[in-house]
């Protein structure tokens, strides 16, 4: 109970999929220049995406609550994990770290005084509170 079941490899192998295959096919097609996706490849990608969801949730949770259980997995845990994991680098723009408005304004001010208006600051603008 205390340790989160974070390890996706311990799962029983099986041929059941939970995510809708048709949706995964649409997602795959959105990035492919060739149209043909075999059923086998579709199955594997669906499985793989499911594994990724388990992995991401499990890792973020394990990271945030090493010892205690019964806590809430929050967005911040995910963005922290993404920020420090090399293989999650592709998610940096998708799950950016939140910053406060005044921090953002400070960043803008520094950028301006440094004379460089970098586009990167846009990705950090998804802040609330």
């Amino acid at each position: 109970m205390v340790e989160p079941k974070a390890n996706p490899v311990e799962r029983q192998p099986n041929a059941d999929t939970f995510l809708p295959l048709s949706r995964v096919r649409t997602i795959m097609k959105s990035s492919m220049d060739t149209g043909l996706i075999t059923n086998e490849v579709l199955f594997l990608m669906t499985k793989c995406t499911e594994l990724f969801v388990r992995h991401l949730a499990g890792e973020a949770y394990a990271d945030a609550f090493r010892q205690k259980s019964g806590e809430t997995l929050k967005y911040e845990h995910l963005s922290q994990l993404v920020n420090k994991s090399k293989n999650l680098e592709f998610l940096l723009q998708i799950v950016p770290e939140k910053i406060r408005v005044h921090e953002f304004q400070e960043m803008l001010r520094l950028n301006r005084s440094a004379g460089s208006d970098d586009d990167d600051s846009e990705s950090g603008s998804e802040s609330d509170e």
Partner: peptide, 25 residues
């Protein structure tokens, strides 16, 4: 993939769903 007593914020769930689509792509 989490202990039974764990809960997940809406925002975290939405982020994981988005991340999964991007992962597949």
């Amino acid at each position: 993939s989490l202990p039974e007593s764990a809960s997940v914020s809406k925002e975290a769930r939405a982020a994981i769903a988005r991340a999964a689509s991007v992962f597949a792509i």
